[in-house]
Amino acid sequence: MTRARTTTAAGKTRFDDIYNEPDPRAYFRTLSPLEYEIPHQAQDVFRRTLAQRSAVRGTQLPVTVLDLCCSYGINAALLNHDLSLADLYAHYTGPTTNGLSRGELIECDKEFYASSRRADAVPVIGLDTADNATRYALEVGLLDEAYAENLERHPPSAELRRAVARVGLITVTGGIGYITHRTFGALLDATALPVWVSAFVLRTVPFQEILASLDAHGLATETDPERTYPQRLFSDPEEQRSAVELVRKAGDDPAGLEADGRYYTRLYQSRPRPA
């Protein structure tokens, strides 16, 4: 029986029942009908941004990536493997993995990802409050390190601070709104290298406080207000009505975007200001 879903204060449907399962099969089965696609939209962006960050003079290679709200390691899978998001949907919703136990799926996925590992793969550290999801990503080899910590409520552990000190690029696709300037401030305080941030942000979610935190830590942020990236279909008419209202309150036009039935994001790219 499907669990009744609640909504956030902004009217967005909560999918808490799929975010921290022992493996990602329910996640993909639930989000497939909603055409959740932001990791696909981010795949090439993150690869290009990583290549640009790697090319910075004096950079020690490979650059370590910190993926915020990493979930089951999906962004890491797409960054470091010759796989598409469609491949992941097919893998986790198809007959090959349907009847496997968690242990059997782990072994299957180790081989699945190892067989498509890119030669230019980089270390990826994952941060998410979902301990089961991060444990899965760690066990199948998608993440090099994983931290199930809530920086909105608690300071980062000493282990996480040491990990962040090695990071050169921070990525996030679906977490802004769940995490705020508090998480970014705590992480940026722990950085030791010049760090870039590549963030996809829903047009319904305020980003000003995070922008202020990035600026206070010496990062300049750019975005193209005319360029948007689809995230997923709305789950019901009420979710759409809430999104359209929020977009209008933010001074944006939902016509042809949220008004047509999907959430949309903007990309914010932050880099250290020139000395």
Rank of each mutant, 00 (worst) to 15 (best):
Y36A: 07
G261R: 12
T191P: 02
R161V: 12
V65W: 10
G73L: 04
P22V: 03
T223S: 15
T97R: 08
T221A: 13
A51I: 05
I106N: 04
R166C: 00
T265E: 14
Y268E: 03
R57I: 05
T97A: 12
D87H: 08
A243L: 08
R47W: 07
G218K: 04
S213A: 14
E209R: 13
W196P: 00
Q208T: 05
D82V: 00
R166G: 00
Q208W: 03
A119P: 00
R117T: 06
I176L: 15
E159V: 11
V65G: 06
H217W: 05
R135P: 00
F28D: 04
A275Q: 04
V124G: 03
V205N: 09
R48V: 04
I18D: 06
G175L: 09
Q52E: 15
V164Q: 10
E139T: 07
L257K: 10
F207H: 00
R162L: 11
E222M: 03
D44K: 12
T2V: 14
G103A: 11
S213N: 02
A9G: 09
R14K: 13
D17I: 01
Y89R: 02
I74H: 02
A259T: 01
L143P: 01
Y268W: 06
V63L: 15
E145D: 12
T6F: 11
A148F: 07
D224T: 06
R5W: 04
A51S: 13
G174K: 10
G141L: 14
L193E: 09
K249T: 11
V244P: 06
V195K: 00
E139N: 12
L233W: 13
R48Y: 07
T93K: 05
F234A: 10
N150I: 11
V122E: 09
E159L: 14
L202K: 03
E107R: 15
P194M: 09
Y264H: 12
E239C: 10
S101I: 11
V63Q: 11
A186Q: 10
L188P: 04
T7M: 14
Y19W: 14
G94Y: 12
T223W: 15
D16T: 07
S157W: 13
Y263C: 06
A4E: 10
L188E: 09
R166D: 01
F46G: 01
A130Q: 07
E239S: 11
A220C: 12
S101P: 09
S235I: 10
V197M: 14
G261W: 13
T228A: 14
D82F: 02
F15T: 01
A86M: 01
H91T: 07
G94R: 10
A158F: 11
R25Y: 09
A4W: 00
Y147M: 02
I210R: 07
S71F: 00
R248G: 03
T6D: 15
L246A: 15
S116A: 15
C69W: 04
A163E: 05
Q60Y: 00
Q208M: 01
R118D: 05
L257V: 01
Q41R: 08
S198Y: 01
L214S: 06
D215Y: 09
S270E: 08
H217R: 05
T129S: 08
E152K: 03
T59M: 12
A148G: 03
A190F: 08
R271A: 12
R118P: 02
